[in-house]
Design a protein around this nucleic acid. Sequence first.
DNA 1: ATATCAATTGTAGTTTATTTACAATTATAA
DNA 2: TTATAATTGTAAATAAACTACAATTGATAT
Lengths: 113, 113
Amino acid sequence: MNEDAQKLNALLDFDLLKKLVVGIGEVSEITGIPTRKIRYWEEKGAIQSETNIEGSTRRYNYLNVKKMLLIQEMIDEGFTLDAAIKKVEKRMVTLNDAFRRLADTVPDTEDKE
Amino acid sequence: MNEDAQKLNALLDFDLLKKLVVGIGEVSEITGIPTRKIRYWEEKGAIQSETNIEGSTRRYNYLNVKKMLLIQEMIDEGFTLDAAIKKVEKRMVTLNDAFRRLADTVPDTEDKE
DNA sequence: ATATCAATTGTAGTTTATTTACAATTATAA
DNA sequence: TTATAATTGTAAATAAACTACAATTGATAT
């Protein structure tokens, strides 16, 4: 069980993956959601970007982007933004959890050789 | 065997992951490698950024970043840049392969409902 | 020591990306 | 048609990244 995560981690480096945060322009290209809309959603509390330093630019991680895609899906299906947010939020719990579980897997041992 | 990848894909969405490309500043923060050095390495052919549109900014995907980290490791161990590149290139074959295998896993079926 | 080459770093001036803050538009339901 | 939700437009300012120069550092050979 944890062995699988171990193997996966060797292949994928979740520690690195967690840090892969992209700018708003990139997110827009990836998802097809206009930057203006992304900012609007953020105002509304639908998503929250990582902004380490104040007065800097927005950064989004994998899960942020995933969430946006899910919200857009819901909206396309006819839900209101608020409803979509609530629905997606529930789904995200699972994803966050699974992701955290994978990310927290301690790599075999840092010092090789 | 493919079932594992299937399950993993539901959790991770490699299709999305492939598209998560970060800017040079972000890479620098993540890896600790100065932006100037990253550009230099790119000149030397050690790495190649994705630059969709000409006259735009550099973008790096997960594997690019991973490669930089590996190269830096080699250099820290005393290898020359050229030697490091060759060594890492060999390792990357495996990673690229594994990654591609995961990424190419066809999601269950696009149209649900 | 010094010449040589690899590796890295510095930076000015310019281009590209993002932000904020204002307002306008479109869509939907009462 | 009025009210509210959702989205979009944009100008001016700030941040991030680019290029193209050159300088510096470090190791190795002469």
